[in-house]
């Protein structure tokens, strides 16, 4: 049976992981390779690297990092952040990334999704959607959730699927950073109206939140950052507990 995926997300700047990461066992908590390896050993199903670099120079360092991760890690990983062209994707895939995630550039230029999907295959094109519920309507946001667009999230998700996205990474800005659980009703609606996998993101605080994302939210995968980085939830505990709740896991 296809299992549900648990995905730690690492923020990357200048080829290094950022945000405090509290793994005492690590010699260098800023080393993405060491951290990625540790997550892979713990049973993470995939990894997402989100590049928050601001300069071209920093981005080139990220490419070198991707190459090193691919050399040492034997599970799939996605790279997102600042990707806006076929050339960007080509460079990342050639450096060994398995998938790329596009966000703002797809909103500004939806044709990009078609172009990427046709050139590289839908299996490696994830579209990330940041959305916020405002007066009962889910509105897509740009630039890490700070700028609202006119797009309804469900309409945009449908369009993204029809343009050839292979999966959707949905982050609820209402839930992100709150540790109060995932946006399960919106997740369920997305999952029912689309036929591609949905990754839930934003709001993970407890193991029960993951259970709800997979049951109520019908998510195919769940992504989290700080609960893993700060050891608040360990991946083996999480996966065992999800399995006990009847959610198929790779153990």
């Amino acid at each position: 049976m296809l299992t549900k995926r648990i995905i730690p997300c690492l923020d990357i700047k200048n080829g290094r992981t950022v945000k405090g990461i509290n793994f005492k066992q690590l010699r260098d908590a800023g080393d993405p390779v060491e951290l990625a390896k540790r997550y892979a050993d713990m049973g993470a199903d995939e990894l997402v690297f989100l590049d928050i670099s601001a300069t071209l120079e920093e981005r080139n360092t990220t490419l070198e990092m991707v190459l090193k991760v691919a050399e040492h890690i034997n599970i799939p990983f996605t790279v997102g952040g600042g990707i806006s062209s076929i050339e960007d994707v080509d460079r990342l895939l050639k450096s060994g990334a398995d998938k790329v995630s596009v966000n703002s550039s797809a909103i500004k230029n939806p044709e990009l999704i078609n172009a990427l999907s046709n050139k590289f295959g839908k299996q490696c094109i994830t579209v990330a959607i940041d959305a916020k519920e405002i007066d009962g309507e889910w509105i897509v946001h740009l630039a890490g959730g700070s700028i609202p667009t006119k797009l309804n999230m469900f309409d945009w998700a449908k369009e993204v699927e029809s343009r050839g996205a292979g999966e959707i990474l949905f982050t609820s800005m209402n839930n992100d950073g709150t540790k109060s659980g995932f946006a399960n009703s919106a997740l369920a609606k997305l999952s029912q109206s689309l036929n591609i996998p949905i990754i839930a993101s934003g709001g993970a605080g407890t193991i029960q939140h993951f259970v709800a994302a997979f049951t109520l939210g019908q998510a195919d995968a769940a992504l989290a950052a700080s609960v893993f980085h700060f050891n608040e939830i360990t991946i083996p505990d999480l996966k065992r507990e999800l399995q006990n709740k009847g959610i198929p896991m790779r153990l």
Partner: peptide, 11 residues
């Protein structure tokens, strides 16, 4: 289309 396509993950 009974299932999500692509199949993506560990089986």
């Amino acid at each position: 289309t009974v299932v999500k396509v692509p199949q993506m993950g560990w089986n």
